[in-house]
Design a protein around this nucleic acid. Structure first.
Length: 939
RNA sequence: GGGCGAUUAGCUCAGAGGUAGAGCACUACCUUGACACGGUAGGAGUCACUGGUUCGAUUCCAGUAUCGCCCACCA
């Protein structure tokens, strides 16, 4: 045994850190755009700088890194670009909460101090996240790390805003938006989550204004879940075909509590079957009412302030919180005898994702992106199959969302984010920003001033020019939407004013990216926004000859599932059921965690469930992966102890003339694995790839091949061939496993090959496929041999032989090929079954030899296995085994014979299936016959 | 109200038109110089239900049920 050997178990923590540092220091993952090799690029979904990473990030990372490491082994020029997202509203919410806890407010702090604090937060949280990504062994280019709020990306955001505005795709206007009173900002439709809430349906009496109608009725009853909006009602609507109210359409209502006269209108939106069939219309506080109001020219009266309290339009209710006002209005109506009834009512209420409070539809002046033209381009691209979704079904989700899309409100009344590049000419409106204030959009203040000067300058208007930048910032997803090209250098040095000529090298080389890997939960938020943005800015680069073949920012979109907890619940911060990836990394190693996560992945993008014990912070799933790492470690350790200091390189190709059955078998299996694994990695079947490698390594290499060559490795006359095959198998296995378990394989590969520390497995080529080694019939024969050995072992176990006790083994078969196989493998069988001796006989020879002899006997296929020993064996157990064999054969015979007896089967089924069926029947019959005979012998 | 997924061994999940597999857990034996984070052998499933297509379905189709997710303006 060599002096130098590995410890018995693998300690991942130190090893992983060592390789992470080595990779990064060497610039192994810092690609040169000019380098040869087909470009392959991935921009990672930038985690929000809202704290630390959760298991979902670890999962996403494991998938992406597996893919890019595989592509690197394929010789591609791979860029994997990391970064983080400023997460405007999420971060601001966290900070405001902190500040509030300290007894202050952001207004007290002021914008500059607040932003300073936000940047400090970013530094800390971003640092934590980047540290965690490193600990996973992410093979990204840290030199190209980006942050959505860094100066380069800010240039891209400003450029994008300016260009969209020039194209008429950004506009400003007063519309009903989703207002989040908690964050004091507008939010987009996507940031609103509908929640089922137990509320009430209040039936309120609305008197007619000008006396009773012809039929004597003097009022209508409306049903509402939001009585407080009564104060802003400007109409009542009924269905035009509702006979009950037809005669009242056009009459006026005297709105209670306000004395306002409002009309009764007929609108098809009203469902006569719901409630009373009468709907109060509050255009300034409800999207449907807004639409009804538009159709009938109703006034819009806003009765609520931005903080969720009632405003001066609410009269005596002014100043009340909206929920207090609800109760107060109901009470007032009741006092006036106008509350008809109150019913419990379960309904959906829009909540703000971040603020966790109900959003308020509110009329507000905001910036919007006109989405339909952008969406149309994306839909057209999708018709051409771009991008390709994996699994395909998500393309439908994506397309449906791009159809009937609504405009995107992009302005946020926040501070942390990209400031909107619009300057108001406040000198035109008395120093105030109002809805009437003209504005200019420009890339910077100087340009804005120049533009404004030309239109509103003193020379023209006679007033001194006064500009003020819009205080609002952009929706985070506006900058995230540019991520696949802003990170690659778009729009280049030129910017809007300069008119960029040359594309940045990274953009030219790596755009469009190869694949986007992300969860389905952000298809709308992110994927669709990226394609829409790309459609606005990258189309001009599309050229029929040369250039890029598509403006769509990614060729493939691989959508994966969510990681769920041990109870199959979605992990979330609020539910407190997250599992800290670092805890598992510390315990089992990053490779084990990665392998466990990837191995769980099914082809269809299903959610995965991670097994976890919260008492002990252990996970059986990850532990199994760690055990696999240890198994690989020990297999390599065994190899190092037996290669006599040689390496795969020094041993070279094994001498074909000396290859034994086991060698040819493992080489065939290896070639098959190579082919299948490359195919699986290449088609995002990562879980299958992982399982295939696991089974090969454990069940074929460790369980059989290593056991089979142990004797030869000790024999100087035979060891060279066995060493060469072993070294090659292990080497290739480590390369193929590298995308999944990068650190362990890097470590073991260096041990095996003796390569210098500065040479990396990560940058090696994928093993060449040895097509000639593939041998299906040999694999089939070998499977028979394995089966024969299993039967011997089983017999020994059933008969209660001690593992250490040698026993003679006889095989009986009349098939020449099988006879030859068993004879060739006699030494192997001897070693693996503790055989005293191994004989292969035909049935006549066996009958002759067996006279009067009691033997342990079993059958497998057409092979009889005999252990002719006398003495203390458990005959009952043996009888049981044979009876089981017999029952199994009988059942098979019944099924097969039944099928063959059916003329439509023999007539219509493919001939080869019928033939196979006949062969199986024959085999089962002979097996049954053998079993019966042996049973009879036992007496 | 639409759409999508899931339903297979105790648990977590693969799978393929020809009568079921893995990991973990379980049982028995084994500290045999790679590995007890291990080895050998073993037990365990009418593949949710009902129809249909087919010579044959757990695998394809339709419907049902249960669970989960997404979208949607019924006040």
């Amino acid at each position: 045994m060599p002096e130098e050997t590995l410890p018995k178990t693998y300690d991942p923590v130190g090893t992983e850190a060592r390789w992470q540092q080595a990779w990064e220091r060497s610039g192994a993952f810092h690609p040169d755009p000019e380098a040869p090799g087909e470009p392959y690029s991935v921009v990672i979904p930038p985690p929000n700088v809202t704290g630390s990473l959760h298991m979902g990030h670890a999962f996403n990372t494991a998938l992406i890194d597996t893919i890019v490491r595989f592509q690197r082994l394929q010789g591609k020029n791979v860029l994997c670009l990391p970064g983080t997202d400023h997460a405007s509203i999420a971060v601001q919410t966290i900070l405001e909460k902190q500040i509030k806890a300290e007894g202050g407010s952001r207004e007290d702090l002021g914008r500059d101090a607040f932003l300073e604090r936000a940047w400090a937060w970013k530094a800390e949280s971003g640092g934590t996240i980047v540290g965690q990504l490193r600990r996973l062994g992410y093979s990204v280019d840290w030199q190209r790390e980006r942050f959505t709020l860094d100066p380069g990306l800010n240039r891209a955001v400003v450029e994008a805003f300016v260009r969209l505005h020039e194209q008429g795709l950004i506009y400003r206007g007063e519309y009903l938006v989703n207002w989040c009173p908690a964050s004091g900002s507008a939010v987009s439709d996507l940031e609103v989550e509908m929640k089922e809430v137990d509320g009430h349906l209040w039936h309120l009496r609305y008197p007619l204004a000008d006396g009773a109608a012809g039929d004597g009725s003097d009022h209508l009853v409306v049903a509402t879940t939001r009585p407080e909006t009564l104060l802003g009602d400007t109409g009542v609507a009924v269905n035009p075909h509702d006979g009950r109210y037809a005669h009242l359409v056009g009459r006026m209502i005297a709105l209670p509590l306000t004395g306002r006269r409002i009309p009764i209108v007929a609108d098809a939106h009203v469902d006569p079957a719901f409630g009373t069939g009468c709907v109060k219309v509050t255009p300034a506080h409800d999207p449907n009412d807004f639409a009804i109001g538009q159709r009938h020219g109703l006034a819009q009266i806003t009765v609520m302030a931005k903080d969720g309290t009632m405003n001066e339009q609410a009269g005596r209710f002014a100043g009340l919180d909206r929920f207090e006002a609800r109760q107060a209005v109901v009470a007032a109506m009741e006092a006036e005898g106008l509350l008809v009834k109150t019913e419990p009512h379960r309904h959906s209420v829009p909540f703000s994702d971040r603020g966790k409070v109900p959003v308020e539809p509110l009329l507000s002046t905001q910036w919007f992106v006109k989405t339909e033209p952008l969406a149309a381009r994306c839909r057209q691209a999708l018709e051409r199959g771009e991008p390709r979704f994996v699994p395909e079904r998500w393309s439908k989700v994506y397309r449906d969302w791009l159809t009937d899309i609504r405009d995107w409100c992009i302005s946020r009344q926040l501070w942390w984010g990209h400031r909107i590049p619009a300057w108001f000419v406040v000198s035109e409106t008395g120093g105030e920003i109002t809805n009437a204030t003209p504005y200019v959009v420009a890339t910077n203040a100087a340009e804005a001033r120049a533009k404004a000067e030309a239109r509103y300058g003193e020379a023209i208007t006679g007033r001194p020019l006064q500009l003020e930048q819009d205080p609002d910032v952009l929706d985070t997803w506006f900058s995230s939407g540019l991520w696949p090209f802003s990170t690659l250098g778009w729009p280049g040095e030129g910017g809007a004013a300069g008119g960029s000529e040359a594309e940045p090298a990274d953009l030219a080389r790596w755009y469009p990216t190869s694949v986007l890997v992300t969860g389905f939960d952000i298809i709308f938020f992110w994927v669709a926004r990226m394609t829409m943005m790309a459609g606005a800015f990258l189309q001009e680069a599309e050229t029929p000859t040369g250039g890029r073949d598509s403006w769509i920012p990614f060729r493939d979109v691989y959508i994966h599932g969510l990681v769920r907890d041990e109870n199959n619940r979605k992990m979330s911060k609020s539910a407190g059921n997250g599992i800290d990836p670092l805890l598992l990394i510390e315990r089992y190693g990053a490779d084990a965690l990665r392998f466990a996560l990837v191995r769980e992945v099914a082809g269809a993008g299903q959610d995965i469930r991670l097994d976890y014990d919260r008492q002990s912070d252990t996970s059986a799933t990850v532990e199994a992966a760690r055990n696999f790492a240890t198994k690989l470690w020990n297999a390599t350790r065994f190899a190092l102890m037996n290669l006599g200091g040689e390496t795969p390189g020094s041993l070279g190709e094994p001498d074909r003339a000396h290859l034994q059955l086991a060698d040819r078998w493992i080489q065939s299996r290896l070639a098959r694995l190579n082919r299948d694994t490359a195919e699986r990695f290449g088609s995002y079947a990562l879980g299958e790839a992982a399982k295939g490698l696991y089974e090969f390594a454990w069940n074929e290499v460790c369980d059989w091949y290593l056991e089979l060559i142990k004797r030869r490795l000790q024999d100087p006359a035979q060891q060279r061939t066995a060493r060469a095959v072993l070294a090659k198998v292990l080497n290739d296995l480590l390369v193929m496993l590298h995308p999944l378990m990068p650190h362990l394989t890097e470590e073991l590969w260096h041990g095996l090959t003796g390569e210098a520390a500065g040479t990396f497995l990560a940058l090696q080529p994928w093993p060449e496929l040895d097509q000639a080694a593939l041998n299906e019939s040999l694999e089939a024969s070998f499977a028979e041999l394995i089966e024969a050995i299993r039967v011997v072992r089983n017999l020994r176990a059933v008969a209660g032989l001690k593992p250490s006790q040698p026993a003679p083994v006889q095989f009986v078969t009349n098939r020449a090929a099988l006879t030859q196989l068993l004879q060739e493998a006699t030494a192997d069988i001897t070693a693996l079954t503790r055989a005293e001796c191994v004989e292969v006989l035909d049935s006549t020879a066996a009958d002759a030899a067996r006279t009067g002899q009691r033997a342990l006997a079993g059958v497998c296929g057409e092979l009889q296995v005999l252990l002719p020993i006398e003495g203390l064996v458990d005959l009952d157990a043996l009888r049981g085994r044979l009876e089981k064999d017999l029952a199994k054969a009988a059942k098979e015979i019944k099924g097969l014979a039944g099928r063959l007896a059916n003329p439509s089967f023999t007539g219509k089924a493919p001939p080869e299936v019928v033939a196979e069926c006949r062969a199986n029947l024959a085999e089962a019959e002979s097996q049954a016959e053998l079993a019966r005979k042996r049973l009879a012998d036992l007496g």
